[in-house]
């Protein structure tokens, strides 16, 4: 008679976590920045059709890295959750915090109960209004949730990009400056260079009314980048080359 191998729960969870981390680090990075105009989300994404950044609700945006099918499912359930809540109660009652909690619960349960953990890491950005400040939540594959401000980064070699951006992003940075900094970060990450075409970007626009999510086209991104270069950004990029 064969006995099943005993694996301690500790070991089991550690293996799962390692598996998930490996999957996530294979992906490319996404950075979320608080800028003057609102909240800027930028992804390193070679595809123009498959988005990593998307609208969840009036003032809430979603960014996900890892396995496409998994974060796409998470994105869709977030939209369903938000639209249901907004319809049954009121549009003001849909908050980033409750969505983040729901995501955390979903990912946490999946991590502890399923054989295969989800290989995803997501960011949920909630644009503040009036007195309420911005909220940025980073939610990990095991459901752990981090409340971040100014800069949040997931996927790829996120630590490196995060350190790069933390050093340079200051409160009061504009959107075009922010775009330039993230692009500089992407360039630093990739030895083979990085094309502007591979940048996906969106803004939760503070000036917006109702639905604040605005996707930036490649042309717009290129335009903002050249605008940013004229300003104080030259310093940042020259830093990088030295």
């Amino acid at each position: 008679m064969t006995m099943p191998f005993y694996v301690s729960p500790e070991q089991f969870l550690q293996d799962k976590a390692e598996y998930a981390k490996k999957g996530i680090s294979r992906g490319r990075s996404i950075a979320v920045l608080e800028v003057v105009e609102g909240i800027l989300l930028v992804a390193d994404n070679p595809s123009h059709a498959l988005h990593k950044i998307s609208e969840i609700y009036d003032r809430v945006a979603f960014a996900g890295v890892g396995k496409y099918s998994e974060f796409e499912n998470l994105r869709k359930s977030g939209i369903r959750y938000a639209d249901l809540k907004g319809f049954l109660y009121s549009r003001e009652d849909v908050t980033g915090r409750s969505l983040a909690n729901a995501y955390s619960e979903l990912l946490g349960n999946s991590f502890s109960q399923e054989m295969k953990p989800m290989e995803v890491e997501i960011i949920l950005a909630d644009l503040g209004s009036g007195e309420r400040s911005n909220e940025i939540y980073r939610i990990s594959f095991d459901g752990s949730i981090f409340d971040e401000s100014l800069v949040s980064v997931v996927g790829g070699r996120s630590e490196q990009l995060k350190a790069f951006l933390r050093e340079r992003v200051r409160p009061g940075v504009t959107m075009s400056e922010g775009l330039g900094l993230v692009r500089a970060g992407f360039l630093a990450q990739n030895e083979n260079g990085h094309s502007v075409e591979n940048m996906e970007a969106a803004l939760l626009e503070r000036a917006g009314n109702g639905r604040c999510f605005r996707r930036l086209s490649s042309a717009e991104i290129a335009g903002f980048l050249s605008e940013g270069e004229g300003g104080g950004l030259a310093h940042g990029t020259s830093d990088l080359r030295s």
């Binding site: 869709k76 359930s77 959750y81 249901l84 809540k85 619960e105």
Partner: peptide, 9 residues
């Protein structure tokens, strides 16, 4: 209102 995990979403 079902939370996310109830499957309906």
């Amino acid at each position: 209102m079902s939370p996310m995990r109830e499957g309906s979403l």
